[in-house]
C-alpha cells in the first residue's frame, strides 16, 4: 500500500512554501523512523544489561515514552504527505470531479484545525508548566514541559503540510 500515492513536493512545485515545507517534513519523517530504530536498540541494551550484567536500565521505560511521543509528532506530517492517514472515502468516491477539490480543501482545512486545537492547547500547558515548575516522577526527573515540546513541533509541521496541500488544491 505504501509508496503508491502521489507525493507532494514534485520538482516543479514552487520553492516556497511547497519545496521547503516538504523538505522539512521529509527530514522530520526520517528522524521519526530513526527514533523507532533507537527505541529498538535501547530495549536491546536494557535486556542485555538486565540478564548479562545484572544492572537494569532504570530509565528505560520513561525514555521509551518520551522517544515515542517525539517519533509520533515528528512523523505525523510525513504520514500526511504520503497520504497514509485513513479517511472514510464513501462520499469522496461518489462525488463528481467538480466537487472533489472542495472535499480535498475541506480535508486539508480539517487537519489545520486539528493541529491548531492541539497546538494551542499544548502551548497553554507548556507555558503553565514552565511557570509552575513541575517535574516528572521517576528515574528521569525533568521538567514536565520538556517532553511535551515535540507535540508543539508536530502540530506546526502538520499544519504546514496541510497548508501546502490546501494551496495545491487552490492552484488546481
Amino acid at each position: 500500500m505504501h509508496g503508491q500515492e502521489p507525493e507532494s513536493g514534485a520538482a516543479d512545485a514552487p520553492l516556497f512554501p511547497d519545496r521547503i515545507v516538504t523538505a522539512l517534513v521529509r527530514l522530520c519523517g526520517a528522524l521519526s523512523a530513526l527514533l523507532i530504530l533507537v527505541i529498538l536498540a535501547q530495549i536491546t541494551v536494557a535486556v542485555v544489561r538486565r540478564y548479562l550484567l545484572d544492572r537494569p536500565l532504570q530509565w528505560n521505560d520513561e525514555m521509551i515514552g518520551y522517544l515515542l511521543v517525539a517519533a509520533v509528532m515528528l512523523g505525523a506530517a510525513e504520514a500526511l504527505r504520503r497520504g497514509d492517514h485513513i479517511a472514510i472515502d464513501l462520499l469522496p468516491s461518489r462525488v463528481g470531479p467538480r466537487a472533489k477539490p472542495g472535499l480535498q480543501a475541506l480535508s486539508a482545512l480539517s487537519v489545520i484545525a486539528f493541529a491548531a486545537v492541539v497546538g494551542v492547547s499544548i502551548w497553554d500547558s507548556i507555558a503553565f508548566a514552565i511557570s509552575f515548575g513541575s517535574y516528572s516522577v521517576g528515574y528521569i526527573e525533568i521538567q514536565t514541559w520538556i517532553p511535551q515540546i515535540p507535540v508543539l513541533i508536530g502540530c506546526v509541521l502538520l499544519a504546514l503540510m496541510a497548508l501546502v496541500r490546501l494551496l495545491q488544491v487552490i492552484r488546481g
Partner: peptide, 25 residues
C-alpha cells in the same frame, strides 16, 4: 479547549505502545 493537548500527550507517552512500531517493523 484546555486539556486536549495534555490528553494527546498523556495517551502517547506510554512505553507499552512501543510494541506497535516494533511489531510493524
Amino acid at each position: 479547549i484546555d486539556g486536549l493537548g495534555d490528553a494527546v500527550y498523556a495517551h502517547l507517552d506510554k512505553p507499552a505502545l512501543a510494541t506497535i512500531p516494533l511489531f510493524v517493523f
